[in-house]
């Protein structure tokens, strides 16, 4: 945008163009910032799922799954750290709704995880990967981005199907590695889309 000038006389068309330009610039800046968060959580999910898979595989003990609780412990301070460098970028309706979708995802997954620990009745990986794909798909719909919508659908439906076919729960963890990579790619797509 050109240097704004308080006293410049504007025509109606110029005023509308200015509103459009400013809104677009601000929207891009806000949504581009969202991309960082997808990348951060994606990297964390990839690293943790691979780590837990390896530890479970080597020791044969599923207790390593408790390491999933390290995700918010590491992730939330990191989110705060990167947010501090964002030059106070505010949230708009879309970014706020996307945050709420992922917050709901976290609440669902934590609840299912805890219920599963005590009852062992739920096919945990299947449900979590389905929810992950669903949250990804909803984010894509909000951002009006077809690659994100499709990758969310493939991750959710394909992942749930793969989870049902995989013989051991340890192997099912690799689905979350794929999920993490998809989150990273989603973050990169958002950063490019709103460059």
């Amino acid at each position: 945008m050109e240097k704004t000038n308080e006293n410049k006389e504007m025509t109606a068309q110029e005023s509308l163009s200015l509103i459009n330009e400013v809104l677009n610039k601000s929207r891009k800046s806000i949504l581009r910032n969202n991309g960082k968060h997808f990348i951060l959580w994606g990297v964390l999910l990839t690293v943790l799922s691979l780590g837990i898979y390896e530890l479970w595989h080597i020791t044969g003990n599923p207790i390593w799954n408790l390491l999933w609780f390290a995700m918010p412990i590491i992730g939330i301070p990191l989110v705060k750290l990167i947010s501090r460098k964002d030059d106070a970028i505010p949230q708009n309706v879309i970014s706020k709704q996307i945050s709420k979708v992922w917050l709901a995802y976290c609440v669902f997954v934590t609840s299912i995880f805890v219920i599963s620990i005590f009852t062992g009745l739920i096919e945990l990986s299947l449900v979590i990967v389905l929810l992950l794909g669903f949250a990804e798909c909803i984010s894509g719909i909000m951002l009006k981005n077809w690659p994100i919508i499709i990758s969310g659908f493939i991750l959710g439906v394909g992942g749930a199907f793969a989870a049902a076919l995989m013989p051991t729960a340890a192997e099912q963890l690799l689905l979350f590695t794929i999920g993490g990579v998809i989150l990273v790619v989603t973050g990169l797509i958002i950063k490019i889309q709103y460059r």
């Binding site: 200015l18 809104l23 601000s26 030059d87 505010p90 949230q91 706020k96």
Partner: peptide, 24 residues
């Protein structure tokens, strides 16, 4: 021009800091 730009930004977000408005 400038007041309209500020109002356009604030119409889209809940609140915005001075530094953000200055940059945008």
């Amino acid at each position: 021009e400038l007041r309209l730009a500020v109002m356009s930004i604030l119409a889209e977000v809940e609140s915005a800091e001075f530094s953000y408005l200055k940059k945008q």
